[in-house]
């Protein structure tokens, strides 16, 4: 069965020699069950080939080039452990700063310049697009606030263990434009649009 299955997959991928292909197709003509299996394999291949993928692209390349130039020689697992606390620390600073501002500040939301803070629960999720963003470890709270304000975005999740935040954009905003605007900030390490 496995031999036939392997041949079937090779046939679907167009990898059989001409003679093998003809022999296999003859076999299929006489065996409706095999023909159905072949139809399944062919359709599966086609769908997987057509499945869209959105890799990081030029952004990923720029990140790689920076890493190479920086001559990071430490194994990635060491870097991973070392970097875990940086985004956590940034997030903690951000939360403290926002809370302080809300408690001590002159009610900035009445002047239409408040940071867009959302409760963790009790409010329906906004339908706008979401971006993934990574800040440089040196980014300050003020930097992060400025970048979020530039796109009217809010941090709704993160940082992940790898330092990735999710930013919710307002409904009807263009994710690509917002991503491009965020990338202009020197302290933004990476932005991935959906």
């Amino acid at each position: 069965m496995n031999k036939t299955d392997e041949q079937l997959n090779l046939w679907a991928n167009g990898r059989l020699s001409e003679a093998e292909r003809l022999a296999f197709e003859q076999q299929m003509a006489q065996d409706p069950a095999l023909a159905r299996e072949a139809k399944f394999a062919m359709a599966l291949r086609q769908q997987l080939q057509d499945e869209p993928a959105t890799p990081p692209g030029e952004l990923g390349l720029a990140r790689l080039q920076r890493a190479i130039r920086a001559g990071r020689q430490a194994p990635p697992n060491v870097q991973l452990r070392k970097n875990i606390w940086k985004p956590v620390a940034i997030a903690a600073c951000l939360m403290v700063a926002i809370q302080t501002g809300l408690l001590l500040g002159p009610e900035p939301w009445r002047q239409n310049n408040a940071i867009d803070v959302r409760p963790a629960s009790g409010e329906a999720a906004t339908a706008g697009p979401r971006l993934q963003i990574v800040f440089e470890p040196t980014a300050s709270t003020a930097d992060i606030q400025a970048s979020l304000r530039s796109v009217n975005g809010s941090i709704v999740a993160g940082p992940s263990a790898l330092g990735i935040f999710q930013v919710q954009l307002p409904k009807d905003s263009a994710a690509d434009e917002a991503a491009a605007r965020l990338r202009e900030f020197a302290f933004v390490d990476e932005v991935i649009a959906p």
Binding site: T54, P56, L64, A67, L162, E190
Partner: peptide, 17 residues
């Protein structure tokens, strides 16, 4: 997981280099 895939892609390419 697109987050982790993007990070590991970078690590794979660094290893290739």
């Amino acid at each position: 997981d697109s987050f982790v895939a993007a990070d590991l892609l970078n690590e794979v390419m660094l290893d290739v280099w």
